[in-house]
């Protein structure tokens, strides 16, 4: 018994040391975000002597923080809602239809998950840009693209769940005179709560942090998302590390808040999303 306790204490210490390693980069950002240039450069480890709160006001201005935050929020919310609606409906159709067409469609969707965005990024610009369909570079366009890329995985997740819902439910609703759409909306969709949470979280984290697609699509400065705007601290401003650290901290805070509110859902969403 005593031995077991000692072993546990040992593992606890190991875990704590590792945790310090994992948290160390963030701690550095935190303490350096309120220091002036010279102090960041010469003694990055020292605690701040005097607090340069201007770093934050300057960083907010430099990266148009509030606008970028708003853009990221709008794009993430629109895209996630659109993905939930489209993929749950598609999954319902595929799970209930016994035709060959639906089997093949399902396989194509699964296979499409290994196509890297890079393999279609170049034709993408020609197809949707000025010389092609000329789609405006706004939130709705990018949400449309996210649906295209996200629908496969989300449909897959919904499909597994819907296949386990007994068909008798649909039949009972049909006998009561409900149209297929009404059956879906009133009976099936409300039962999908847990998967919807998983789908929402996996897609929200992906879209919130995505850099490549918005960097190709969102040309206008006033539509850029938070990751794009954070990139202003690359190169040009890295001479002023204090400012850059404040900017990085500002870009991290929203997702951390989201995590601490949704912690349980996020963890269970990830475990559920991974079990295929």
């Amino acid at each position: 018994m005593k031995r077991a306790k000692r072993i546990n204490l040992f593992f606890f210490l190991v875990a704590c040391v590792l945790a310090v390693f994992y948290a160390f980069p963030f701690l550095l950002v935190l303490i350096n975000s309120v220091k002036d240039k010279r102090s960041v450069r010469n003694e990055p480890l020292a605690l701040p002597q005097e607090f340069m709160w201007e770093n934050f006001t300057n960083a907010i201005k430099k990266m148009d923080y509030w606008q970028a935050l708003g853009n990221s929020l709008i794009i993430t919310v629109i895209s996630v809602v659109a993905i939930i609606i489209t993929s749950s409906m598609l999954a319902y159709y595929l799970a209930r239809s016994k035709s060959k067409f639906s089997t093949v469609t399902f396989l194509v969707l699964v296979a499409s998950m290994i196509v890297p965005f890079q393999a279609l990024m170049i034709p993408f610009v020609g197809l949707f840009g000025e010389r092609g369909l000329n789609m405006p570079g706004n939130q709705f366009t990018i949400a449309f693209f996210y649906v295209g890329f996200g629908v496969a995985l989300s449909t897959f997740l919904y499909h597994g769940f819907i296949s386990n819902i007994p068909y008798e439910l649909d039949e009972a609703a049909a006998i009561d005179g409900a149209s297929p759409f009404k059956t879906f909306r009133k009976i099936i969709f409300p039962m999908l709560g847990p998967v919807t949470a998983t789908v929402a979280i996996i897609n929200a984290l992906w879209i919130w942090n995505d850099f490549l697609l918005p960097s190709v699509v969102l040309i206008e400065t006033d539509q850029k998302t938070l990751p794009l705007k954070t990139f202003v601290f690359y190169g040009k401003y890295t001479s002023d590390y204090g400012l850059a650290m404040a900017g990085l901290l500002l870009s991290i805070i929203p997702i951390l808040i989201f995590y601490f509110i949704m912690q349980r859902k996020i963890i269970s969403g990830i475990s559920a999303g991974a079990v295929k």
Partner: peptide
């Protein structure tokens, strides 16, 4: 066919337009 039109047409068209078409063109 009606079920396909109601549930699958829009999601699949977006999927084809955004992923399948650029990929094949590429």
């Amino acid at each position: 066919i009606k079920r396909f039109l109601v549930f699958a047409l829009i999601p699949l068209s977006i999927f084809v337009l955004v992923l399948v078409v650029p990929f094949s063109r590429g």
